[in-house]
Design a protein around this nucleic acid. Structure first.
Length: 564
RNA sequence: GCCCCCGUAGCUCAAUCGGAUAGAGCGUGUGGCUUCGGACCACAAGGUUGCGGGUUCAAGUCCUGCCGGGGGUGCCA
């Protein structure tokens, strides 16, 4: 393994290379049959007796090679190029190869980590590929809800992970600033506005019944006065709708910023109509042959597209009244992202209530000749929000909402982010606001932050002794080596999270790292002591730990305090 | 009905293309403060991974049938 100037050591990758070389060498000598070797699976054994890393490659090869897996393991170990990394490489039944890192090599890695500092964890996976992450994108028809916080935390953290993994990332918020929902919103806002002025204008049946609409109308009335009442209702509704919409967009932007989320682009749906892109893309789609006119509407015949990217049923692109559906503008939007702006990959993060949209979106992309694999869509499950025993159903239309702003005020941005990130997107989430607020001090996020603050405290106390001159070869204590091993896992976790678009690995790793630091290293190894050489060496290790803890926190968008 | 997600310790959740003895946090019980920061640490109890079949050297993980929860199934988004 080599530490290049812009990437971090990944032990796993080195083992894969060693095993690949060993396999080729064995085949060259006729010790293994000439079959195509799969990439070696590498894992970290739970049992320390099995070494630091293990491969089950012999077990995978046994059938095809028609050989005993233990025999294959012995052959591979025999052909393995020497590496300074490992103290021991052993075979173990039924056919594992176990690798144990050497103490001297481990200790040396502390220098490498301190040298790259904030860049530790950077891996060349992305090769500069351009990836856009689009997330939250809630309709501007109400304040962001607690559920939006999950998508926000996921999307922002994924963007940070991909960036560290060598991708050029861009965060985007798609603003549905037009369409039927906004129409209903405008009419509701007009009704509330008129009601405040004593007029008997009912909220439409399909309107937004939440009390926040009354508040919004009141704010606008205070700012803009009564003049909209004298306009024709349709015009008044449209103008009030635009004002309300813009206020809510500004509010969303501010709330997300308070959560540490800043977008590169807020993309307007209306702009797709203004530039005629919707019409152009509909033409392109028509040329694909998957468009049909019937019953006065224009349909996308995705059911004819075949099994995998297809959809069970057809979907309307243009209503019989001539107005395109959201689906139509969304196809144009993705055409803009994938073709016009040319992102290599576009990751959409949607709530589970949009899952039905996935197959038809993929089908439409396919019909336009775009590889649907360039559009991974992450569906995160809903969150069940509770206040103690009471379950809060959230719907902007009924108005029963808990806003993201309230969540941030109650539990804090750091705790909220850590909580949202700790669950895999697939898992339903249970969020008890009372509990989260009441137990905020026991929240795992503080454990990680505390570990970081403690490293800072030790370095402060060290004063001039912390001059970076420590001799890392003095780091031989089991607890010191355990801490180094755990730190070396960080680039692997970044890779895992980036490859699978799974941010939840980061908080889990952060917790493990903090535990090893506090329970093993700090508990067993006093840093500041009479032994000046040992003190300097351990200070360097603490610096490394501070860097890696800080990197995990930064990756999650959570503060890394110097003191608490 | 059909499609998608989930079901793992009392609770909330992990478990790296299927790997060796299924792990954390909270909660519970016991013990520890002469503190490089006690927002801490040690130990303990707690599991037939919803149930039944199947594939495999190996299944929480893959296939299949049930059971239970959530979501989707609009000329809404």
């Amino acid at each position: 393994m080599r530490l290049t100037e812009d990437s971090s050591p990944v032990v796993k990758d080195e083992i894969v290379q060693l095993l690949t070389a060993a396999g080729a060498s064995a085949q060259g000598k006729g010790l293994l049959p000439p079959l195509t070797l799969p990439e070696a699976p590498i894992e970290r054994p739970a049992n320390p007796a099995h070494g630091d890393y293990a491969s089950s490659l012999p077990l995978k090869l046994a059938r095809a090679a028609r050989m005993n897996p233990m025999q294959i393991a012995r052959v591979l170990v025999g052909e393995l190029p020497s590496s300074a990394m490992f103290a021991r490489v052993e075979t173990a039944p039924p056919g594992f190869i176990n690798f144990s890192l050497g103490p001297a090599w481990l200790a040396e890695q502390v220098n490498a980590i301190v040298a790259v500092g904030p860049d530790f964890g950077h891996i060349p996976l992305g090769r500069g590929e351009r990836v856009q992450v689009e997330f939250v994108s809630a309709n501007p028809t109400g304040p962001l809800t607690a559920a939006s916080g999950r998508g926000g935390a996921l999307g922002d953290c994924l963007a940070r992970i991909l960036q560290l993994a060598g991708y050029r990332t861009s965060r985007e918020y798609y603003v549905n600033d037009t369409g039927a929902q906004l129409e209903a919103f405008s009419q509701t806002l007009y009704a509330r506005y008129a009601q405040l002025l004593g007029r008997d204008v009912p909220v439409p049946a399909h309107g937004y019944h939440g009390s926040y609409m009354i508040d919004l109308a009141r704010e606008i009335l205070a700012a803009e006065g009564e003049r909209y009442l004298s306009l024709p209702p349709e015009q008044a509704a449209a103008e009030l709708g635009r004002i309300g919409r813009d206020r809510l967009i500004a509010d969303a932007r501010a709330t997300l910023a308070d959560m540490g989320i800043v977008y590169d682009c807020w993309f307007s749906e209306q702009s797709l109509y203004d530039s005629s892109l919707v019409a152009r893309v509909l033409d392109l789609l028509r040329q694909s042959g998957y468009v049909e006119d019937r019953e006065g509407a224009v349909w996308f015949t995705s059911s004819a597209l075949g099994e995998s990217p297809g959809d069970q049923k057809d979907n309307v692109l243009v209503r019989s009244n001539g107005i395109p559906t959201y689906f139509a503008s969304d196809i144009a939007y993705h055409y803009d992202k994938l073709v016009i702006r040319g992102f290599d990959r576009v990751i959409d993060i949607w709530g589970a209530d949009h899952q039905g949209h996935v197959p038809r979106m993929k089908a439409a992309i396919t019909a336009l000749g775009i590889d649907p694999d360039r559009l991974p869509i992450i569906i995160h499950q809903m969150i069940t929000l509770r206040r103690g025993e009471e379950i809060v159903r959230m719907s902007k239309r009924t108005g029963d909402i808990v806003t993201l702003r309230e969540v941030l005020d109650e539990v804090g941005a750091d705790a909220a982010r850590f909580f949202f990130l700790s669950r895999s997107a697939d898992a339903h989430m249970d969020f008890d606001l009372d509990l989260a607020a009441r137990q905020s001090k026991e929240n795992p996020v503080y454990y990680v932050q505390y570990a970081h603050a403690r490293t800072a405290s030790i370095l402060r106390n060290a004063g001039p002794l912390d001059d970076g001159s420590g001799d890392v070869s003095l780091l031989r204590h089991d607890a010191e080596l355990a801490l180094i091993k755990k730190m070396l896992q960080f680039p692997e976790v970044v890779e895992l999270a980036a490859r699978n678009d799974e941010p939840h690995h980061i908080p889990h790793y952060a917790l493990e790292l903090a535990s090893v630091f506090q329970q093993e290293f700090y508990e067993h190894c006093r840093v500041l002591s009479d032994d000046e050489a040992q003190t300097r060496a351990r200070l360097k290790l603490v610096r490394a730990a501070k860097a890696v803890l800080g990197n995990t926190l930064r990756l999650m968008g959570i503060g890394a305090p110097e003191q608490m």
